[in-house]
Every structure is written in structure tokens, then in C-alpha cells.
Design a protein around this nucleic acid. Structure first.
Length: 555
DNA sequence: TAGCGAATAT
DNA sequence: AATATTCGCT
């Protein structure tokens, strides 16, 4: 029975390569642990490593966030302490989710509210410490499943592409991945260059100012092409969900402070970004915002509401006065004489010099909103909107086929792996699919049903096989399966009528629905892995032999 | 090259 | 309308 001999494991194409970690299904799994609890961290490192995971640890969420924004290291799994001292746990979670990182949120003390919030925000699982070894052991399967799922989603998309056009509006989320291919043929082009060169100069008109004015839209790569290319290059690279930063008054304030601090002539996107140091905020985003501001085209959310109300947005006066104020940082490169002064100020910690001729000022432009009074913790600064939440509820075939073979039993040597994943994932599934919109930029972005859909996922998973999510057979099977093993879990059921507590900023859509959804009582799912052994087949460590060499930044 | 600003897409 | 993405340029 020693782990050495699991030859049987490979009957099906499942994979025999015991030689590689994770049964060869995944090359490596990089786990980032975000927790300030030394003890826990130490233990987890050992545990994780014993299962061949690449581990990287950080104390606080902020650190992890910057790590993610740098994007240097690929991360597959994040284990986040829900109570990071810097209070950024949820922001980190948002970020991680946006990057398709399987995120487990852990806590010392269980709080339904937090559990709910974590799941709401896309956490794969919400767990109380210490983590059950089984979870760690099968962590990689979560990753695998997500990955496969994503690929399938992509494939499906490709297949249907011709008929999908707009049709799939409800398919939130895929818009950026899908992209209809109206004009076939272009995809054949070997490379972008060629396409770029297709711009016909003669089609441009010379306008009075001597510049060329494009007659037709630029011959840019369609996002579709990009996506295609991407998916080719890196089959396993996940498609990033498109995220949209919302420039809240706070965030803007931060931005303005940076502008102020830098001084005219030095307001470049990059430097601004650095000064702002808002994790996750990219240079491009700053550039975009800067552009908007320079053009005096940006309004705070409050202002927007206001102007919207008075429908006017009038051509004339009114909103115009702001202009003089917002012209800051124009042409950073113009470098006005203010420079020296600025430089000076720059060196000093205290920069806000009133006399700073910068228009922007101190200004109360946004003070109107409660923002200014807000704590200095950059709370809701970066509100990431998941515009493309949709997770195609496609179940991947890989699992499917295997599952089919194993219908009826959890035993089969080579299948346990998947059985397990079925059980576990199935139970976890709720949180996996459960991704109500966080907050959307504009009402246009239909996330609406996601909520119900997903809530169902959560509710149903443990108890029944009613159709939901995708309604495929596979799915039901999984769910049923889960149902049978259900007893092993202790489902923590939230209070029946728990409506959104005030402290959950929420996502209005969600809260509304919660209120009206009779199933809400099952909303909150909390697992207790006391008896996991019954649920999972013990396969021994995923990889007994193979020492994994890939030692990137991960140990 | 990386980073910028403007143009353009979504 | 607001934010993202692309692109030519330095």
C-alpha cells in the first residue's frame, strides 16, 4: 500500500506520472499565504511543502496586493487571512479573484458576516483555521478544475462564435473573451505587424491643422484577435477578467494629492501611480484618468449624480467653473518654471503648499462627498468592478468523462482523485460560482441573475440535484454525489433571515435579492472538515517521489 | 525600451 | 459617460 505503488492509478488516461507532482495534471501550484500569524504560517509552509506546493508567504494583504499588481509571479492559489491588520483582506481578495486566482479565505474566529462577504466576493472557500490537511492536500485540484473550466469556456465560445454575436448578452462576462468575429479571415494573419501595415495612408485626409485625420477607425487589433492569440500562446494562461477601476472620490483625491505633490511638469502617469501607491492600480489606468482630468472631463460620482438629475448637463455655465480647477498637470513635459519650487517641495515630506500654483488644490471639489472625512485608510479606494463575472457554468469534460466511469462509487483507485474533487469541489462549488456582482460601474452591466443563480448553487449543492447553474447531467451527478457525502460536512447555515448587515457595503443587487430569496437561509456555507477522510480517498501525497525543482521565487 | 499623450473602443 | 485599450512617437 505504500504510496510507491499506485500503478493502478492510471487506468484511464488519468495519468500515471507519479513522477510529477499533482499526478502530472498540473505542473506546479504556487500558493501564496497571506497571514500575520507566524505559527499558522509556519505550519502551513510545512504542510504545503509536504504536498509539493510552491509556497510564498506574506504578512499582510497590502504586500500581497503589490505583488499581484506587479504581476511578476504567477499565483495559483491564495490563502488569505480575513483579518489582515491592514484591513485590506477583501481588497486583496477582489484583486485575486480578478486574476482568477483560487482564493481561500481563512479566519481565526468564524463570523458569518465575513464568511458571507468572502464568498460573495468570490472566495473559493471560507475556512476556519487551522486548515484541514485534506484541503491542503487537494488544493491543486481546485486549481486544476478552475483551469479546465476556463479552457472549456473558451472553447465553447470559439465554437459558437459565429452565432453568438450579441446574442449572449446574458452571458455576462464573456464579452471580453468572446468577441464575435464578424470579419473572418483576419485571424489568419500571422502577426500583428502585417495588420498594422494595412492602414492605408491614402485614406487619410489632411486636415487644416496639418494633421492626419483618420477616415476610418484605426486598424487596431481587435480584442478578439488578442484573445485568440493569447490563448494560443499560453494554453494554460488564464484569461484575465476585465476589471474596471472605479474612480471614487477617495481615489481621485489620492490622485490629486499625487498631482499636487509631484507638481506641474512632473505629472506622468507612472510617477503619479507611484505616489498614489494604490495596489492594483496600473499606470494605464492612471494615464486614462489623467487624460480625462486634463480635459476637464471627469466628475466625481456625486457630481455625476447631480448633473444627471438636473438632466441638463447643460452646455453652458454650471459645471464649467470646475474647469480652471482641474487643469492641473497639463502637459507634464512642459515643465514650467514652477519646477524648482516643486522639486524642493518634493523632497520635503510636506508638500502641500498652498501657494502651489497648481490649480488643483486642496480643493474641496470633492469634499462634498463624505470622502474627505473618511479615515485615512484607503478603504474603498479601489473598487474593482468585475465586469465579466460570468463563469460559464460549463463543467469540464475531463472530469466528466472520468466521472462517468466512476459513477456509483467513490472507490476505484484511479478515480478517487476525481471523486474527491467532485465531492469537495461540488460542495465548494457554491462559492466557486457564487459571484454576485461586486459593484458595477453602470447599471448596464447586467449581473442581476448571477445572484440567484449562484445562490442556488450554494443552496442546492448540499441538498439536492435540482437543476441550476448549468443544468447538465454532469452537474447533477456531481451534486448528487455531494449530497450523499453531505453528512461529512457540517453546513453552517446562516441565520434564516439574515439580510445584509449594514456593515456589508454591498452590492445592492445582491442584498435586494437576498432579501427576497426564500432560500437565503442556506446562503452561508461553512465547512467543518472533521470527517474528511470518509469523504476523500486517501491517495497519499499527490506526488511521493518527485522532488520539484522549479524553484522560482517560490520555495 | 518604456512610457507618454492622444485617439479610439467599449 | 466613464474607463480601457491601442498606437505612433520619442
Amino acid at each position: 500500500m505504500s504510496e510507491e505503488q499506485k500503478p493502478q492509478i492510471n487506468t484511464e488516461g488519468v495519468d500515471n506520472s507519479m513522477a510529477t507532482p499533482f499526478y502530472g495534471m498540473i505542473e506546479e501550484v504556487r500558493v501564496v499565504l497571506v497571514d500575520h500569524d507566524k505559527d499558522f504560517v509556519t505550519k502551513m509552509i510545512d504542510l504545503l511543502k509536504s504536498y509539493k506546493y510552491k509556497v510564498r508567504t506574506v504578512d499582510m494583504a497590502l504586500e500581497a496586493m503589490s505583488m499581484l499588481s506587479k504581476g511578476k509571479e504567477k499565483v495559483d492559489v491564495m490563502i488569505i487571512n480575513v483579518n489582515s491588520p491592514d484591513l485590506l483582506s477583501f481588497q486583496l481578495l477582489d484583486q485575486a479573484i480578478a486574476l482568477d486566482i483560487v482564493s481561500l479565505v481563512v479566519c481565526d474566529e468564524h463570523h458569518k458576516i465575513l464568511a458571507k462577504k468572502a464568498l460573495d466576493n468570490g472566495a473559493y472557500l471560507y475556512l476556519k483555521k487551522p486548515l484541514h490537511e485534506e484541503i491542503v492536500k487537494y488544493l491543486w485540484q481546485f486549481v486544476l478544475k478552475e483551469k479546465i473550466q476556463k479552457e472549456r469556456a473558451k472553447e465553447g465560445v470559439e465554437e459558437n462564435r459565429h452565432q453568438m454575436n450579441i446574442g449572449d448578452v446574458n452571458d455576462i462576462g464573456n464579452n471580453n473573451i468572446i468577441e464575435t468575429e464578424e470579419q473572418a479571415g483576419e485571424k489568419d494573419l500571422p502577426n500583428t505587424e502585417e495588420q498594422r501595415n494595412n492602414i492605408h495612408e491614402d485614406e487619410n485626409d489632411v486636415v487644416p491643422n496639418g494633421k492626419y485625420k483618420l477616415r476610418r477607425k484605426r486598424d487596431r487589433k481587435s480584442t478578439k484577435e488578442i484573445n485568440e492569440r493569447e490563448s494560443q500562446n499560453s494554453a494554460n494562461k488564464v484569461v484575465r477578467r476585465k476589471v474596471c477601476t472605479k474612480w471614487t472620490a477617495d481615489l481621485h483625491e489620492n490622485f490629486m494629492e499625487a498631482i499636487q505633490r509631484l507638481g506641474e511638469g512632473r505629472c506622468f502617469p507612472k510617477s503619479i501611480r507611484n505616489v498614489m501607491s494604490v495596489p492594483g492600480l496600473t499606470r494605464l489606468q492612471v494615464a486614462s484618468h489623467l487624460q480625462k482630468c486634463r480635459n476637464n472631463n471627469w466628475r466625481t460620482p456625486e457630481e455625476r449624480k447631480f448633473t444627471r438629475q438636473r438632466s441638463g448637463r447643460g452646455s453652458s455655465s454650471g459645471s464649467k467653473q470646475r474647469s480652471s480647477f482641474r487643469k492641473f498637470g497639463t502637459m507634464a513635459h512642459l515643465q514650467t518654471n514652477v519646477t524648482n519650487l516643486q522639486q524642493h517641495q518634493h523632497n520635503q515630506e510636506t508638500q502641500r503648499n498652498p501657494e502651489f500654483s497648481f490649480p488643483l488644490n486642496t480643493n474641496n471639489t470633492f469634499v462634498e462627498g463624505e470622502s474627505s472625512t473618511q479615515q485615512h485608510i484607503y478603504r474603498s479606494q479601489l473598487q474593482v468592478d468585475l465586469q465579466y463575472l460570468n463563469i460559464n457554468n460549463l463543467f469540464n469534460n475531463s472530469f466528466y468523462s472520468i466521472e462517468n466511469n466512476s459513477v456509483g462509487g467513490i472507490q476505484r483507485q484511479h478515480e478517487p482523485l476525481f471523486e474527491m474533487s467532485k465531492g469537495l469541489q461540488g460542495s465548494i462549488i457554491g462559492s466557486t460560482y457564487y459571484r454576485p456582482g461586486l459593484e458595477f460601474n453602470d447599471g448596464d452591466h447586467h449581473v442581476q441573475n448571477d445572484y440567484d443563480l449562484n445562490v442556488n448553487a450554494i443552496n442546492i449543492a448540499p441538498y439536492s440535484s435540482s437543476t441550476m447553474i448549468s443544468g447538465t447531467d454532469v452537474e447533477n451527478e456531481i451534486i448528487n454525489e455531494l449530497g450523499t457525502t453531505n453528512a461529512n460536512f457540517q453546513h453552517y447555515i446562516g441565520e434564516p433571515n439574515m439580510s445584509y448587515p449594514n456593515n456589508i457595503p454591498a452590492t445592492s443587487h445582491a442584498s435586494e435579492n437576498v432579501g427576497s430569496d426564500s432560500n437565503e437561509e442556506n446562503y452561508d456555507v461553512y465547512f467543518d472538515f472533521n470527517n474528511m477522510d470518509d469523504l476523500f480517498q486517501d491517495l497519499g501525497p499527490p506526488s511521493v517521489n518527485l522532488p520539484n525543482e522549479h524553484g522560482n521565487k517560490f520555495d
